[in-house]
Design a protein around this nucleic acid. Sequence first.
RNA 1: GCGGGCGUGAUGGAAUGGUAGACAUAUCGGACUUAAAAUCCGAAGGGCUUACGCCCGUGUGGGUUCGAGUCCCACCGCCCGCACCA
Length: 813
Amino acid sequence: MLEMFPYPSGRIHIGHVRNYTMGDVVARYKISNGFNVLHPMGWDAFGMPAENAAMASGGHPKEWTYSNIADMRGQMKPLGLSIDWSREFATCDPEYYGQQQALFLDMLEAGLVYRKSAVVNWDPVDMTVLANEQVIDGKGWRSGADVEKRELTQWFFKISDMAEDLLDSLDGLENWPAKVRLMQENWIGKSRGIEIPFERTDGDGKIVCYSTRPDTMRGATFLAVAPDHPVSKALEASRPDLAAFIDECRKMDTTEAAMEKAEKKGIDTGIRVKHPTESGKEIPVWIGNFVLMDYGTGAVFGCPAHDQRDLDFARKYDLEVRNAFYMPGQEVEVGTEALVPVKTETVAYIDHFAGIGETSSQQGIDATIDYFEEHGLGQGQTQYRLRDWGLSRQRYWGCPIPVVHCDTCGVVPEKKENLPVELPDDVSFDIPGNPLDRHPSWRQVPCPKCGNAARRETDTMDTFVDSSWYYARFTAPRAETPTEKADAEYWMNVDQYIGGIEHAILHLLYSRFFARAMHVTGHLPKSASEPFKALFTQGMVTHEIYQTRDDKGRPVYHLPEDVDRAAKVVKATGEALEIIPSAKMSKSKKNVVDPVTIIETYGADTARWFVLSDSPPERDVEWTASGAEAAYKHLGRVWSLCDRIGAMDKDAAGQGDDDLMRAMHRCIHDVTMGIESFGFNAAIAKLYAFTATLQKSKAGHAAQRQAIMTLAQLMSPMTPHLAEDIWAHQGGEGFVASAPWPVADEAMLVDDTVTMPIQINGKRRGEIDVAADLDKGAIEELALAHEAVTRALNGSTPKKVIVVPGRIINVVV
RNA sequence: GCGGGCGUGAUGGAAUGGUAGACAUAUCGGACUUAAAAUCCGAAGGGCUUACGCCCGUGUGGGUUCGAGUCCCACCGCCCGCACCA
C-alpha cells in the first residue's frame, strides 16, 4: 500500500490528510483481511524550494529540509496512520541518493543514459538556468531580465527506446483509471508517417521532412524548418534578417503550451525545393517559430488546405493554397477554413500521383507511403511524440550525477566504491547560480580511470529521478545495494498506489520506465516492470475564499478563522465580506485550513471521517466548518450509543433482533463493497444509516452489542481511535485493528418481497410489492391489474410490456 | 492551442441503462428547557391543485432506447497536464 510521498514543505496540508487517510483505510482493511501489509512513508526531499528558502532567509537547504521533515512527521503521527516508520527515508539522505547514483552508473553501462546538447532557459542577469515556472512572460522571475535560450550538453535517459513497450503494456493495467492510460497513450503519441527528402534547387543537398499526412502532398505549398534547424543556422551568419528572427524565436517561451498559443510567425529563407511528385513545381522554404527541432526531423511541409494552422500561416504570408482532395461531390477550393475531415471519412483525391480516387484519408495515407517507398521518394517511419528524458539540472539541491570529466579520458563514470558522491555542506546561496560550480575544491577529483587531475560533473539530477524508484527502495530501505533481491521479489509490486491526478503522465511514466530499467540492470524482477498494479487518483481539498478590497480596489484575502461566515463580515474590523465559491487551497488566497488545528479541536478521527465523507475520493472535496462539526457530532453520537448499549439490562427481552441483524449484514456488505471499490463516501453514508437504525432499535442486549461491535469494526479503518474505544468498552477481545474483518451472511441479505416500480411510457406511475422469486408472467399480470395501469390503458391493450424482475415494469401504451 | 476529466436541489453529493435527489450540511417546524445551547423527532427539487393527482426537472441543443444523470454528437463553463514546480 503506497501513497505518493510528500514534498517536505514544512506543514502538512489537508490534502495530505485526505491522501494518507484513504491509503490508511485500505491498509487497515487489508490487514483485517489477513494480508501482510507494507505501508511506508518517506520524503521527496530534493528540489528548488529548499534553495529558494536558503536564498531568501540565508539558511542551508539541508537544515531547512530536515527540520521541515521533523515538523511534518510530528504533524502526521497524531493522525494514527498505520505506517511502518522504521522504513522511513528522505531522498536527500546520502544513503538513498548514493544508491541512486549506483543505479545511474548501471543504466549508463546498459546504454540507457547518454549525453546530447539541449536548450535551457538562461537568465543573463542572474547568470543562472531557470526552470519553466521561473520564467514569467519571457522574463526571469527574480531579475526581470529577458530570458535567453542557451545550449548545454546534458544527460538524457533513453526512455524513447521503451516507448513501444510503455505503450503496449498500458493494456495490462486494468486497475488503472482508463483516463490515465489514455493520457499516457496520447503522450507517448505513436504515429505512422513518412520521412520525405526534398531536393534543394540550389543543389545543396536535401531537407528531410516528417509527415503523417503524405496523402496531401499535392497541397504542399511550403516547407517550414525549426529556428535551430541546421538549415536555419547555416544562414544565420549571412542573413541579418534571418538572424534577427531566429534570435526572436530563441527568446520565446519554450513550453509547449506557450508555443501553441503564440502567434505563428515565419520568414522566407529564399531556398527552394523540388516538389517530389510534380516535376517543375518548386516550394519555398520558410523558418517557422512553431516547428520543434525535437520532434520528427525538425522540418515539416505545410499543407494549408488541410491544416488550419498552416492555412492561417499561408494567408498571413500570402502563400499558395491548393486542395489535395475535395469532399465527394463538392469541388470547392478551400477559403478561410481548412478542410480537415476525420481519417475514416471518404474524400475525393485530385489527380493523385498514386492513382487514388475516392477513398478514406487513412487508406490514402497508407497507399501514399507504399507509393513513396516503391519509388524511392521516402521511407515509412513509426514516430513517437515521447521525447527522451533530460535529467541534468544546474542546481545544488539534488542528487549529484556521478561522473568525472577528464581531459584525456573524456567522460568517466565514478567508481562504485566512491559512492555516494556527496553534496558539500560548505556552500552559500548569497549569489545566484549553482554553488557546486563555484565551490573551491569539490569539483577537483582525480580521474577514476587514469588518476590525473579531473573535474566532477556539477549538474545534479531532476527530482523526478528520486521519485521514480522510491517504491522499490521501501522494500529494503537500508540495503547496501539499490534493492535486495529477496525483498523486492516478496513485496513488489505495489498493490495499490494513491496520488493526485496531476501526476498522471510524468511521474507515473518515468516510474514505469525506471522499473524496466531496474530490471535490465538486475535490480528488480521482470514481474515488477509495471510497478503499480492498481492506481487511484484522488481529488483536491478545496475551500471558499473570503475576500474584501482595499482602498485601491485590490483584493484582500482573509483566513477562515478570521471571518464570521454567517454574518459575512471580517471579525476584527466588521468589514463586509465577499464569499467566493470553492477553489483549490492556496496560501496566497488564504483559503487554507490547518490539519493541526482540526486535530486539536476535534481529534484525528473527525478529520479522517470528514475527508472521506461527502465527496467521492476521485473528486475534489470542499472543506466546510459545518461539515467538520457534523462529523464530530456524529462520532459523539456513536460513542453515546455505545455507552447506552453498555448500560442495558443484559437479560431483558427485546424486539426486532432479526431486523437489526439483517440491517447489520446489509451494512457489512455495503461497507465492504464501498471500501473495495474506493467508494469511501458511500460506505460512510451506509454507516450513518446503520447508526440511525441501531439508535432506533428495540432489540435485546446481545443483538445490540453485536451490532455496535460490528459498527466499530466497520468504522475502524476510518476512525481507528474511536473504534478501539468502543471495542474495549464492549469487552472485545484484543484490538479491533487485529480482529478479522466481518463477513456478511448472504442469507441475511435476501429479502422475501421486493417493491417494483411501474412505469407507463417510461414514467413512474405506481409500484407493487411482489415475492422476490415471482416469474415475469405473474409480475406482468399483477402490473396490468394495477389501478394506474388500467386507468392509462382505458380498456385498450398495451403496445408492449417490459418486465425486469426485481427491477422495473414498463408498460408502453 | 493540444490531450484528459468534470458539470445533478440552497450546499457537498447518491444512483450495475431501470423509482433522480440516498447520506450529510444549511433552512423551517415540533419535543425537552424559565430561556438558550446541546440533544431528539419531523418537513422539504420547482410549479399547478382543497385533494386524488398532473406538469417540469441532472450545464445547453440534438440523437440512440420501451426507458438516459448514465450511451453517442455538437456547444458552453470549470479543473488537471503540456516534458526544468513538486
